[in-house]
Simulated scan of single mutants.
Amino acid sequence: MEFHEGAAGPGDGVLDFSRLNLNSLSVDTISEERRRDTKQLYLNYNRLASLPSSVCCFSNLEFLDISNNGLSVICEDITRLTMLKILIAKNNRLDEFSLPKDFGSLRLEVLNFSGNRFEEVPLQCTKLRRLQSLSLGGNRLKSIPAEIGNLLSLELLYLGGNLISAIPPELANLPHLSYLVLCDNRIQSVPPQFTRLNSLRSLSLHNNLLTYLPREILSLVHLQELSLRGNPLVVRFVKEMTYDPPSLLELAGRTVKSRNVPYFPCDLPSHLLHYLDLASKCPNPKCAGVYFDSCVRHIKFVDFCGKYRLPLMHYLCSPECTSPCSSNPQSDAESEDENSVPADRLQRVLLG
């Protein structure tokens, strides 16, 4: 069977079988030495209904492209490719039932499943501990599993063009995440835990259902690009006055925390010690109070880069912590200069 050397030239470990309309891959005409030396294999743009088991004869394969085929299943034999680092499988017919049980045992660093039929993120993918880039754009995902937080090496996560309505707080457990793409979904809010994404440089949230952002977004000091266009971000000052009175437990906890009453582990039951550790400081600079479960949702416009006014959600300890509802959102935004984002930090803010 005819095969083409890759652009790198003979001897560079590249075999290109792309665009040959293959139904199967025969390796009989390829020497054992050549199979052993091949590190990149291109099988894209063919008519493969399933991944040929003969692919596993390339024992040192590091890069495999099986995009733009008719694949509905990936065979168990792929787990024998112990050196495989990059798997590109875009634009096929794969879903959450298409992967072998032990797929998570691979040493993949880059995985691209965009343009398939996934309705759920396969849990096998959340076991790829070395994974640095995961792309599942243009699928039918309705949610992001909490197990996504297990991918501690992840630097890029692309989930644009799905049906996702919520972001799990576990996503904030990814210490190296630099590029997060969640555009073209149905997301209504961003979890405040995003403040822990210390490496985040680019956040794409355009074409969702956002009406506000958590104020914690301001703490992302490395964020350079923020895309928010196509969201129904509020255009006037909004204040939600639903407020449940604090419980006796919370009132006692507030007193202990706000007055710095000393206590020690031997003084209180473990569940009360844990409860006191959950105290949140009121963001109002004129208030020194804290809150636990009872708080007021308060949207305030703040200055982004001296050019944009964005609504950020605050959680205040009581209705008395904020000034009366202002008819001028701009003047209200200017009342808290500490909430503004320096103009030299964000390089691109896309709102419209």
Rank of each mutant, 00 (worst) to 15 (best):
L205H: 01
G253K: 06
N260Q: 14
F63V: 06
F3V: 13
Q347Y: 11
L156D: 15
L128Y: 05
L131S: 09
I217K: 06
F292P: 03
L154T: 02
R36K: 13
K39H: 08
N185R: 06
M313T: 12
E216A: 09
N208K: 03
F292T: 01
E119C: 09
D267Y: 01
H222T: 14
L209I: 12
N185F: 01
Y243F: 09
L182K: 07
L268F: 07
Y42S: 08
P122G: 03
C75M: 10
H4A: 10
L171R: 06
K39L: 11
E155H: 03
L157A: 07
V190G: 10
G137D: 08
I30W: 13
H298I: 02
L346W: 03
S326W: 05
E109G: 01
K286M: 11
E62Y: 02
G289L: 07
D65A: 02
P269F: 01
N284E: 14
E5D: 10
K90N: 12
L151D: 03
P10Q: 09
V181P: 05
S135V: 11
Q40N: 10
E336F: 11
N207L: 02
G104N: 07
D65T: 05
V27K: 07
P168W: 07
Q193F: 04
Y291T: 00
P168T: 05
V234D: 13
L156S: 15
A252L: 15
N139D: 00
N44G: 02
L157C: 08
E155I: 08
K239W: 04
L156R: 15
E96M: 03
Y263L: 07
L108E: 00
Q124M: 08
L134R: 00
P319L: 09
L106I: 05
G9A: 07
N116A: 07
S335H: 00
L123D: 12
T211S: 12
S114N: 03
S327D: 14
L154W: 00
Y179G: 09
D244I: 12
M313D: 11
Q132V: 09
H274L: 15
S24M: 10
S227K: 13
V190N: 08
L99E: 04
F292Y: 11
E250K: 09
S340I: 01
K85V: 03
E5I: 14
G306Q: 09
K300W: 00
P191T: 12
L15W: 08
K127V: 06
Q132T: 10
A49W: 09
H271P: 05
C266G: 13
R297N: 14
S327K: 14
H274G: 15
G104M: 02
S178M: 08
E170H: 13
D28C: 11
Y315H: 13
L177K: 03
D184H: 14
S105R: 05
I299V: 14
E320A: 12
E76Y: 04
G230K: 10
P324E: 10
Y291L: 10
L71P: 01
N139I: 15
P329M: 06
L223K: 05
R297A: 13
V349S: 04
V256Y: 03
S72N: 13
